[in-house]
Design a protein around this nucleic acid. Structure first.
Lengths: 148, 148
DNA sequence: TTAAGTGCAAATATTTTGCTGTCAC
DNA sequence: GTGACAGCAAAATATTTGCACTTAA
């Protein structure tokens, strides 16, 4: 489904501009793709979707934009246990951390937020004297539909 | 430090043989490297260490052996947040799952076992109707020495 | 004996870099 | 105007595949 050419600037774009990052046509497009994604996309999928909106966008620009977003802590990088290849998947960094459960059979990825995980982070900070900046939790297993 | 040529068969080797997997000289060497590793090694590091014991070992054989071990659930694959490149790191699958804390400044990786994490898995199994087979937890942040 | 495994070469996949011209501010 | 950014080509990195020879069981 095509996206309107002139879209309300999303949170990512606003965040970057607030930090004084130069906003180009290409970046706006790529950020839009990431913000409106309904699933976790990898670099190639982001490229394909971006090129539907602006065919001149280059693969390299996608990588550079992803790197920029990572540097600013605005996206998280996942590999979803490599169920679908060796690349990485991206999602806007959420307010609260969440876990990713990937079904080893059907490949579906479900997210889960948990108080217990927040407590676990607290425990790590205290016990390990480790100041957590980002987390990444991926679990492989079988979802309700696929479990035998 | 060089390893004795004839080593007591480690747990990995025993596990594979119990499952009827053919045991070759090369595999024995590679399994030995993984079992005696003191840190998380990537494919290239495993290759280098294996070649010190048997220079004829090929990179491809390392990848094939790692794939075999993954298929049998005998090693876990990590990427340690790509602090040291885009490859993957391997560790023998532990009795109890643990978390990996990687320092964004010095790169040190610390492991942590937690009851709370076991409870979290239980919660996921119940709430999400998801049967967990493997987990992977990586946290980036600053260790006691590096935190400002 | 023979199916599975190995090394070698080449292919594929993913990401990065160098350079030149362009654009946001 | 100028420093940051884009596109293109090529390189670098990581992993897999095809094939002929070798070896564990």
């Amino acid at each position: 489904m095509p996206m309107p050419k002139t879209e309300a600037p999303g949170r990512l774009q606003a965040e970057l501009m607030a930090r004084g990052v130069r906003m180009t046509r290409q970046r706006r497009t790529i950020l839009g793709v990431i913000e409106t994604a309904k699933t976790h996309l990898d670099a190639s999928q982001i490229l394909r979707k971006a090129q539907r909106l602006d065919p001149s966008i280059d693969r390299v620009t996608v990588y550079r934009t992803l790197k920029l977003l990572k540097r600013h802590g605005l996206v998280d990088e996942l590999d979803l246990l490599h169920l679908r290849g060796d690349g990485h998947y991206y999602e806007r960094r959420p307010q609260r951390d969440h876990l990713h459960m990937a079904c080893l059979r059907c490949g579906k990825v479900v997210e889960f937020e948990s108080r217990l995980f927040e407590r676990l982070k607290g425990e790590v900070e205290r016990e390990c004297h480790f100041h957590i900046m980002l987390t990444r939790v991926e679990m492989g297993g079988y979802c309700a539909n696929c479990r035998t």
